[in-house]
Design a protein around this nucleic acid. Sequence first.
DNA 1: ACGCTGAATGGCAACGTTAACAATTGGTCC
DNA 2: GGACCAATTGTTAACGTTGCCATTCAGCGT
Lengths: 337, 337
Amino acid sequence: MSRPTLADVAARAGVSAKTVSNVLLGRRHVAEATRARVLEAVTEVGYTVNAAGRGLASGRTGRVAVVVPMIYQPYFAEVAERLILALAEHGLTTTLRIAHDDAAERDAVLGLTTPDVDGVILCPHGLSPEVLGDGIVPRPVVQLGGGIMPSFDCVIMGETEGFRSMTEHLLATGRKRIALIGTGPGGAPQGSRFAGYLEALTAHGIDLDERLLITGSDWDRRASGYEAVVGLLRTGVEFDAVMCFNDAMAVGALRGLRSHGLRVPQDVALTGFDDTAEVEFTSPPLSSVSPEQAQMVAATVRMLIERIDGYAGEPRVVRTGAHLVPRESSAPAESAG
Amino acid sequence: MSRPTLADVAARAGVSAKTVSNVLLGRRHVAEATRARVLEAVTEVGYTVNAAGRGLASGRTGRVAVVVPMIYQPYFAEVAERLILALAEHGLTTTLRIAHDDAAERDAVLGLTTPDVDGVILCPHGLSPEVLGDGIVPRPVVQLGGGIMPSFDCVIMGETEGFRSMTEHLLATGRKRIALIGTGPGGAPQGSRFAGYLEALTAHGIDLDERLLITGSDWDRRASGYEAVVGLLRTGVEFDAVMCFNDAMAVGALRGLRSHGLRVPQDVALTGFDDTAEVEFTSPPLSSVSPEQAQMVAATVRMLIERIDGYAGEPRVVRTGAHLVPRESSAPAESAG
DNA sequence: ACGCTGAATGGCAACGTTAACAATTGGTCC
DNA sequence: GGACCAATTGTTAACGTTGCCATTCAGCGT
C-alpha cells in the first residue's frame, strides 16, 4: 500500500480533493463540519502532504537553506540549531549547506548551489559586497552576523558595543595593557570589534599600542588563537590581558598562555566573544560577550518569512544588543586564588 | 524571466525535452554530438533541474534526513558535517532533524516527521528496539553509532575495543584505581564501553570496585561530567584515573578535578572518547579514543545508498575500529611536569 | 533485397498538488 | 418575488519532470 494522497482522503471524507486541500491550507469558506470530517479522514488514512506535488503546484518548496562555513565550531553549531528549530516552528524545513569559502557563499546566495528553496539564511564567513559582485540575488536572503551587505536584509551583532564594554570591564578591574587577537586584512585586527576596543581606550585616555594587536591566521580555528598568543609572547611585549575576537581563538589562546606557564587570571586576563557553551567549562571559565543569539535568530527568521511572503522593500538592517558575561578568566589579578 | 525549464533547453538545442532529460540523467543511447549540444544549451540558458518536478515524476526526492539529538555538542556536529559532505558527493541533499528524545527519534525513523526523503540516517541518543516498537519502517534507515537495532542497517563503533585499549593504556602507565564515568539504566555505567573496561581489568587480574563506577545524569552534557566527578570526590574513594564515556563528560570532569585542586595528569589521569576537536585544546589536552569517524560515515552512506537503490537484504551490521589517541592528560604521573 | 538488430530520439501520460474559476446552495434585500 | 450576494464545494488545467513505449534509421547478415 503506497502513500495516501489527497484523493484517498477525499474519498474517505466524501468530498473532493480540492476541499481537502482547502482544509489543509486553512482556507476560509470551509464549513466547520466539513473541516472536522476531513481532518478525521486525514488521520484515519495517515495522510501527509507530498512536498513534490505541492511544490510543483504552488511554486513554494517550504524549504530554507541555512548556509554556514562549518558546523564543527560551536558558534555556528549553536546558531544553526536555533535556526532549524525556529524555522520548524513556522513549518519550514532546513537544508544545511557548508560553504567553506567566499566563492561557495556567493554561489549559495546567488542560488547556483541552492535551487529549490524559498529563501536563504547566510551566516557568513567573510562574504563582502566585492565578492558578491553585481549578480542578481534571485530569492530572499537574510544575513545573520557579519558586515552590512547592500543587497539583502542583515542582522548585525552588537560587536562594537560588546568589545567596548569588555574593554571597559578589563580596565575597571585593573588591567592596563590589553592585547587584542583578531583578524583583519592589513595584518592587524580591524572592523567593528576593533572599533569597540579603540573607543574604550580613547575614552580612558589610553594610547593605542600597535604592538598589542595580533592577527590570527584564521578567524575560526582554536589553533589560530594558540599561534597568535605564542607569537605575542615571543615579541616580549608586556601585557596583562588578552581579548580575542571570538571564543574559539580564546580557547586556543588559553592553551598557549598555560603552556608558557602564565596563569589566568592571576598573570593575564583572557576573554572571548560569542558566549558559546564551550567557554563555561574551560579552566578557568572564560569571560565572553553574548551576542543575544535568541534575538538575532528571531529577527532573521522573521525578516526571511516576510520576504518569502512577498515583502519587497529596501534591504533592512537590524542591530541586536550584546551583553557582557564576566567569568573567572577576567577576575582581578589580586583577588584570584 | 522565470526559471528555465527542460523545454527552454530543448528549444535552444533543437531537440525534445525528453532527450534533454535523457542527457541529464546520463542515459545510454544518446549520441555524443547531441549530448554536447544539450549540455551547451543547459549552461547557456542557466538551467537547473526542478526538484519538485523530478520528485513527482520519479518518486525520488534526492534528499536524506540526518537525525541527531542536538548539534551543539561537537561529536554530533562533526558527524553531521561529515555526513552532509559525503552525501553531497553523491548528489544527495540533507535535511537536518533535531530529535531531542526517544519519541522524536522513533517518529523520524517511522517517517512521521520525515516525509519526502529517500532515506534516513539516525545518530541515536538512546533509541532502543523497545521504544521503536513494531512499527513498520517505511523507508531505508541506517543507524550510525548506538546499539544494534533489528530493523535496519547499523554501523557500530569499536566501543568495547576502544575502552579496552584505553584501560590497558592507563594500567600500563601506572594507574591502579581507574574510575569510570558513564551512563546506564541501573545507576552504574553499562553497555559496550563498560564491557571494554571490565575486559581489561579482568585480563590484568584486577577486581572491579563498584565504588569507582559513576553515572552521569546525562550522556551529552559537560555539566554531567562535572557533577559526576564532584560526586566521586565527595565519596572519598581513592582513585588515580578517570575514564569518561565521551569527550563532553571528560571536559566537565576536568573542570571538576581542577576546581578541587587536583592536577591532571600528576594526581589523576583523565580520558574521553570520540576524539572531538575540543579535547585538543583543553589544558592539558585530553587523551581520547577515535572511533574512526571517516570510516563510520563512509559505511553509513554506502549502505544507505544501496538501500535507496533497492537492496532489500536482511539488516546488516558494520563494525568499525577504534584507536587510542594518547595525549598529555594520561601521561605517567611521575614524568609529567 | 529483405528482415533483423540496436542505436537514437520523441510522444504521451502520469506523478500529487494548487490556482483560477465555475457551479451550486441558501439566504437577504428591496 | 426576483435579483443579488456570500458561503461553500467542485471542475479543469496547469506545474516540470520522468517512465513507458513507439518510431525512425542505419548497418548488418543471409
